[in-house]
Amino acid sequence: MTTIRITFEKCGEAAYISLLDLQRVFHRILKRSGLPVYYTQGFNPHIYLSFACPLSLGQESLCESCEVKTEAENPDLEQWKETLQPYMPRGIVITRVAVAVQKIAEIETAVYRITMPATAAPALEEYNAAPSAVVVKKTKRGQKELELKTYLPQIAYTVVPEGVAFDLKLPCGTGEALNLNPSLLLGYLQQNHNIPPWECRVLRTGLYTKTGEEFC
């Protein structure tokens, strides 16, 4: 059995498609396509389909992915891509269909490109100067206080035509491992500096494994 990873962009309007809805789209198209994907055994067989670190609603990404399994030998993966793409909503662009190299559990960090209005620059300066920036993170077991500065001591932003921009590298573990959403920083800036999060753009640009390799 081979694991196949389907990597895609999720931008623009597609940023508002929920994981559940996206799962349904993929599920239906895969079923309909007749591609030789593996179905789980049992009473109610369904396609094995697993999305890696799905984004929050409203965030965009260049590197979303889901994996399926196949028992086929040497599947023509270029043809898989061509079969699936026409059924995708606007903003979902399949960039790659390939045999998976790593496991989803190996993902450790995610990098985001954050763009903010120019008016946010002073707020970022203040953040950089502040000794501490505590936010509340919701977990399965309730709420937990978290020191953002541990993970993000300084924000090195640059001025861009839309305002200011910077890259954000955050832990993005699966299961029990720590996972920090960029919305924690946006929430902090909204609460303490009145920066409206809807004026900020979050674009995930890469996922990386423990060894620093790009997830694929």
Binding site: G12, E13, A14, Y16, I17, S18, D21, V25, L57, G58, P86, Y87, M88, P89, R90, G91, P196, P197, W198, E199
Partner: peptide, 22 residues
Amino acid sequence: STKLRQALSQVQKPGRYTGGEP
């Protein structure tokens, strides 16, 4: 638009208001 993004960030099932369906 920023306004639309603001609205979408506050509502249930924003996918109903964005179009782009296949």
